[in-house]
């Protein structure tokens, strides 16, 4: 893993500021993303965690304008990819970014591939579109990509249809498609959730090695703090369409500050514990996002809630070096030890 001093000095490839996305539905407005800011440097892997409905997918799809408008509407913010604001790009320029500069791997590999086209066709499409390759060049590159993601006998498999692949293999194909044009950024939206544990581990290994090989920035969305611990440099915790905590992995696991993060970490089965009999989940319901948050969205479920939480939504502030949190409360042990260099 890169030393912090090196990565921190690089300018971010992707910088998102104050992103806000709403959905117009028949039951009224849904405020899915309420001012999300984050950045991503080249070669870095940022994990995004949060329970279902916290706005992880909507945030990332908003960046590439992949949400159908209507019902979605991006109401504010900017998303700079090397200085260009993706939210204000011309459609043709945006098309070049999609697949060309940002690769996207979706949650469900079973439905994300077109059932009536061969894998070869679907894999060569972006190559011909963005890199202007000829049929045979694209084919050769497709074979390379398939072997890169660990698909045996790639020449033969090019002519197969998606239904002839297993779930794990389809996800590898999806990753190959996302990597096809050497993107600067790879966004992986829960790429392993639909897969079983061994396949999940294989995909994780694959991404780790590819990341070193290709040096792109990766955003990895997951429910699972355990997965993030293994691969990420930094972690961003989302709740109610907001980033509530953000820090380097080691820091976040050693000193979680937000009560939500702390609760999430407690729900993890401990690695050493042979019997994790109490697999706790966080009590209470995720917020209804029918209004933009005026109070802390986690307050109704928070064990440390006090008056201020209900009156004012805490902003994301740097509470310790490189450690941002959006909470009025601070854990008592916070100020004690501050030696950090236990990076995995």
């Amino acid at each position: 893993m890169d030393a912090p001093a090196i990565t921190d000095s690089k300018a971010p490839v992707l910088e998102v500021q104050g992103l806000r996305t709403v959905f117009h539905t028949s039951e009224g407005m849904i405020h899915a993303v309420n001012g999300v800011s984050f950045y991503l440097r080249a070669g870095e892997l940022v994990g995004v965690v949060g329970e279902s409905g916290s706005g992880k997918s909507v945030t990332m799809m908003s960046l590439m304008k992949l949400l159908p408008e209507p019902p979605a509407e991006i109401v504010g913010g900017s998303a700079l990819l090397e200085g260009r604001d993706l939210l204000r790009l011309e459609p043709s320029a945006l098309r070049h970014v999609r697949g060309g500069e940002i690769g996207f791997v979706f949650q469900d590999p079973m439905t994300s591939l077109n059932p009536v086209f061969t894998i070869g066709y679907q894999l060569t499409e972006p190559l011909r579109e963005h890199l202007g390759m000829s049929r045979s060049e694209a084919r050769a590159r497709a074979i390379d990509l398939l072997s890169l993601v660990g698909i045996p006998t790639p020449e033969e498999r090019l002519n197969d249809f998606p239904h002839q692949f297993s779930g794990g293999m389809r996800q590898r194909v999806m990753i190959a498609i996302a990597l096809a044009c050497d993107p600067k950024v790879l966004i992986a939206d829960e790429p392993t959730t639909a897969l079983d544990v061994t396949i999940q581990a294989q995909i994780l290994e694959l991404v780790k090695s590819l990341r070193q090989e290709l040096g792109m920035g990766i955003v990895w969305i997951t429910h699972d703090l355990g997965v993030v611990a293994g691969i990420a440099d930094r972690v961003m915790v989302m709740y109610g369409g907001l980033v509530v905590e953000h820090a380097r992995v080691s820091e976040l696991y050693a000193r979680p500050m937000h009560p939500y993060t702390r609760a999430l970490l407690e729900t993890l089965p401990s690695l050493d514990g042979t019997r994790s009999d109490r697999l706790r989940s966080i009590a209470g319901q995720p917020p209804h996002m029918t209004q933009a948050p005026s109070a802390c969205p986690f307050a109704p479920r928070c064990t440390h809630v006090h008056d201020r939480c209900l009156a004012e939504n805490p902003p994301l502030v740097e509470a310790a070096p490189g450690h941002d949190v959006a909470c009025w409360w601070r854990p008592p042990e916070q100020v004690s030890e501050s030696e950090v260099n236990a990076d995995a």
Binding site: G99, S112, P126
Partner: peptide
């Protein structure tokens, strides 16, 4: 509304290719 349509868009295909090739073929 299928997921593969989003994949096609995420690959940077033109609307024409998305609708008249990917969707129509299905």
């Amino acid at each position: 509304n299928q997921d593969y349509v989003r994949t096609a868009r995420a690959k940077g295909m033109s609307e024409q290719a998305v609708v008249l090739l990917h969707v129509l073929r299905n």
